[in-house]
Design a binder for these strands. Structure first.
Length: 506
RNA sequence: CGCGGGGUGGAGCAAUGGCAGCUCGUUGGGCUCAUAACCCAAAGGUUGGCGGUUCGAGUCCGCCCCCCGCAACCA
């Protein structure tokens, strides 16, 4: 079945496993998704932006027991923590799904029933190394040099149990074809190539259930087996838009336009998930963006190194918008990239405090010094520079198509520089009030600020609003189709400088 | 020889075979409207190594060295 509307945009982040805390990695994915969601709302799309938490599995059950809580109470608190973190980062999600919610469980049960009805499910046996302490299975590669569990340093047992299997192997060719032809568009390209080369080796079937786990969703056709958490988790992408419960909404948004994810979970999303969907007759997602990881001061982020940076640490230092900006500018695409506090501070100062912030102050100070409050930009205000501004805006749009946030930001910075150069060249502060050039300079600069306020909105919504308020402009989070282009045209509206100037960034 | 990506000034990146550029940082100068801000300039490179093709190679070819990603149920 086709999507019922071509104007919708369904975008997701992974649902985060509640056993880990939110860190700058999960914040990175989430902020990037928010940037896109906000952009597409401005661009006239009907956006559905989904986030959530993954709450099942034996690890959670153990952690809950350790904390002396029931799993239900335990995950509720942890899930809320994620939600609050995203709210703190001003994430404009449209819905937040928890795998413990009834609506999700219902969707999982329906999905698995359909899967069972397909010819792709069979019973087989699963072999793995079982650690009593962890109550979970490991692969050989997960064990330490003595073949013991890394956490408990205890010997593990090779256990074989009956599981239900999904015939993933039968999807190799169809997936290859769809990915190679970009019907399932995986990018950046290196990730697509990786997935394709993996597919070329042929796929093995995967087990979709566990016997030894109790915290999860029982299979509808075998109550003794619990749905394997990954299968459970992936289904969130359809349960959140009403799979099996709200058909109208579901077909409005499915297939997803874009799944965002980190490279660690590329396989599940690029192979297993599309195969599962195809098995039950649903369309695979249209696009998957796989980003790379941050290292911190040259080292992998890990609990054992205790070098994990939390979003709140960055917010304390750089504010919400500053944090969003720095994450987006640092988004690692093809390769991992290194985060260093010193560098983040440098970037914050150069781009925000002394770039955008300083520009805002100097432009408004000069305008008010000459008592110019009413701004009416025209095509005659430095047409050569206008051309460059428009070129940069085009570059910004192009960059967003490929989720190249660094390039999008670079386009914004270029427009800031244009005004700084103009000021230095024309020295408006020294001009007399009746010199016609003065008006052109102020017009150009303020109009550029207006355009910037729109361009930065998806990145830094609060800062955008601050600028607009001072310029006497309305604020908005979504626009009808085609309206963004109009609003980005030179001289779209008159402005009146209304309030006192405050610094944008401290 | 498992598959794939890459090695370019201190950092991050860019260059259909045609003067090796951009952003940040550093240094010097200018300016003083602006948040020690802004503008200009300079320094800084044998483009990982060796060889080859070519009038001309970061770019093409061969060999070598080094880094990184992926190699399945880690939720």
């Amino acid at each position: 079945m086709e999507k019922t509307s071509s104007n919708t945009f369904f975008i997701t982040t992974p649902i985060y496993y509640v056993n880990d805390k939110p860190h700058i990695g999960s914040a990175l994915t989430t902020v990037t998704a928010d940037f896109l969601a906000r952009f597409y709302r401005l661009d006239g799309k009907k956006v559905f932006f989904a986030v959530g938490t993954d709450e099942h599995g034996s690890k959670i059950a153990q952690a809950a027991a350790l904390a002396g809580k029931t799993p239900e109470d335990f995950v509720k608190i942890l899930s809320l923590n994620f939600k609050q973190n995203w709210q703190n980062l001003n994430i404009s999600f449209d819905d937040f799904i928890r795998t413990e919610e009834d609506r999700h469980k219902k969707a999982v049960i329906l999905f698995l029933s359909k899967l069972k009805d397909s010819e792709y499910i069979y019973k087989g046996s699963y072999r793995g190394f079982y650690c009593n302490g962890c109550e979970s299975f490991y692969e050989k590669t997960d064990l330490d040099e003595n073949g013991n569990c890394k956490i408990h340093r205890q010997p593990v047992k090779l256990i074989e149990e009956e599981n239900w299997f999904f015939a993933l192997s039968r999807f190799s060719d169809i997936l290859k074809e769809k990915i190679a032809s970009n019907q399932i568009y995986i990018f950046p390209e290196n990730r697509k190539n990786e997935i394709l080369s993996f597919l070329n080796q042929g796929l093995k079937d995967v087990s979709i259930s566990r016997q030894s786990v109790f915290w999860g969703i029982p299979l509808p056709f075998d109550q003794n087996q619990i749905t394997y958490v990954w299968i459970d988790a992936l289904i969130n992408y359809i349960s959140i838009i009403g799979f099996g419960q709200n058909e109208e909404m579901f077909y409005q948004f499915w297939p997803a336009n874009l799944h965002l994810l980190g490279k660690d979970i590329a396989r599940f999303h690029c192979i297993i998930w599309p195969a599962l969907l195809l098995a039950v007759g649903l369309k695979p997602p249209q696009a998957l963006f796989v980003h790379s990881f941050f290292t911190v001061e040259g080292k992998k982020m890990s609990k054992s190194l205790s070098n994990i940076i939390s979003p709140s640490e960055l917010i304390d230092k750089f504010g919400v918008d500053g944090t969003r900006y720095l994450l987006l500018k640092s988004l690692p695409r093809e390769n991992d990239s290194d985060i260093q506090m010193k560098k983040l501070e440098d970037t914050y100062n150069a781009d925000l405090k002394f770039g955008l912030g300083n520009l805002f102050s100097r432009v408004l100070t000069v305008a008010l010094k000459h008592n110019i409050k009413n701004i009416n930009p025209s095509k005659e205000d430095f047409p050569d520079l206008q051309k460059q501004v428009i070129q940069n805006i085009n570059n910004y749009f192009e960059a967003i198509k490929t989720i190249d946030t660094e390039k999008a930001i670079s386009a914004i910075l270029h427009n800031i520089t244009l005004v700084d150069i103009l000021f230095d060249r024309e020295k408006p502060w020294s001009l007399k009030i009746d010199e016609p050039k003065l008006k052109n300079i102020i017009n150009f600069s303020i109009e550029n600020l207006r355009l910037l306020s729109i361009l930065i909105f998806p990145l830094m919504p609060e800062t955008s609003f601050k600028i607009r308020k001072v310029l006497g402009l309305d604020t908005f989070e979504k626009l009808p189709t085609g309206a963004l282009e109009k609003r980005l045209s030179w001289g779209y509206e008159k402005m009146t400088i209304t309030s006192e100037i405050k610094h944008l960034f401290e």
